[in-house]
Write a protein that binds this DNA or RNA. Structure first.
Lengths: 179, 179
DNA sequence: TGCCTATATGTTATACTATAACATGGCTGC
DNA sequence: GCAGCCATGTTATAGTATAACATATAGGCA
């Protein structure tokens, strides 16, 4: 079990992540005979430009920076394609989208969404899957497509918040926690 | 472990469910000193009128049948109150709402949504919770508010679909499965 | 090559979901 | 009564997603 960490340090070189995601997408499309068109590629690049989820209209705004005047439907079409090919995931609880970082076959991811920094970690826990399928089966329910999106705190933000709370009256306290 | 079944038979007397939900709501409000106003009660009645999730605008339409002309915000305010008091749950993956049927204290429900009949079963599996918290902790993530919404098939619909698929060329096949 | 077809994109309009901002009403405790 | 809080009314708008139809482009095949 040498899974890569779900949450990378804030100062990691994100270009490496983005490149890996794009390279993977090209491979997937080549294998399946589908087309990673310029528009789809640009949407994927934008979605993959950070580990936070991004909304469809924010994607559209980013596309406009490139000079075009895309309509919402263009973004949704690209997202539909990317989601159908498991290159992007929809975060239903946020109406937003993240690039898939689990670059291999698997059934069902769980998304860990940090409430402070917004970073989304994609987890594929066999234990969670089995617990869920087992519990559902106990109710006679057969699982098809689980949506598991967990709001919480990533390690870095949790540590920062804890440190801020412990500080007696430091100026840093409200820059992180706010409450 | 004598939990009530998550999915009741299609022909169950739903008035009993609805009455229990309303009675529970009255008890909760009495205990907390909050007010189950007429508007909130009517919204809860509508949400509790079936075990399927219902959208905010469908609730509004149902309210109109009663003669009023409620604005969307009125429905959302009532829903906010009901959700804050754990009397109603939001199904993020559907932008819809269901009445809480787990009438006691608990942390985090899992929702099983039948793709055929739309019925939502509310499950509170300790095993799923522990698996999720444990797996998240392995990534240094502390869980605050999980959203677990599982699309699948309830036992009744699964049985009906299986029977239809097994029938050689029965007329009933496409009335259930469609594909 | 040139046509044909399937797929992708453009264009316009609209549906669906949710909230902001401010005014009004009504209950409760003094 | 009235002060304060909570709930509701009213109007407007923000945010998310899709329908319907026209056009363009890539790639296969005669």
């Amino acid at each position: 079990m040498s899974d890569p960490p779900l949450f990378l340090a804030a100062d990691h070189d994100h270009r490496i992540c983005a490149r890996a995601i794009l390279a993977h997408a090209e491979g997937v499309c080549r294998t399946r005979g589908t087309r990673l068109t310029e528009q789809r590629r640009r949407v994927l690049e934008i979605v993959a430009s950070s580990h936070a989820a991004i909304g469809a209209y924010a994607i559209m705004d980013r596309l406009k920076e490139g000079g075009g005047r895309p309509a919402p439907i263009a973004v949704y079409r690209a997202l539909d394609f990317l989601i159908a090919n498991s290159l992007v995931h929809r975060i239903a609880s946020r109406n937003a989208y993240v690039a898939c970082t689990h670059l291999g076959p698997h059934h069902g991811s769980q998304f860990l969404i940090c409430r402070r920094c917004g970073t989304v970690g994609e987890m594929t826990s066999e234990g969670v899957w089995q617990a869920l399928v087992g519990a559902a089966a106990g109710a006679g329910f057969s699982v098809v497509a689980p949506v598991i999106e967990v709001e919480g705190e990533c390690a870095a933000c949790h540590a920062a918040a804890t440190a801020a709370a412990a500080a007696p009256d430091g100026a840093a306290a409200d820059t992180v926690a706010g409450a």
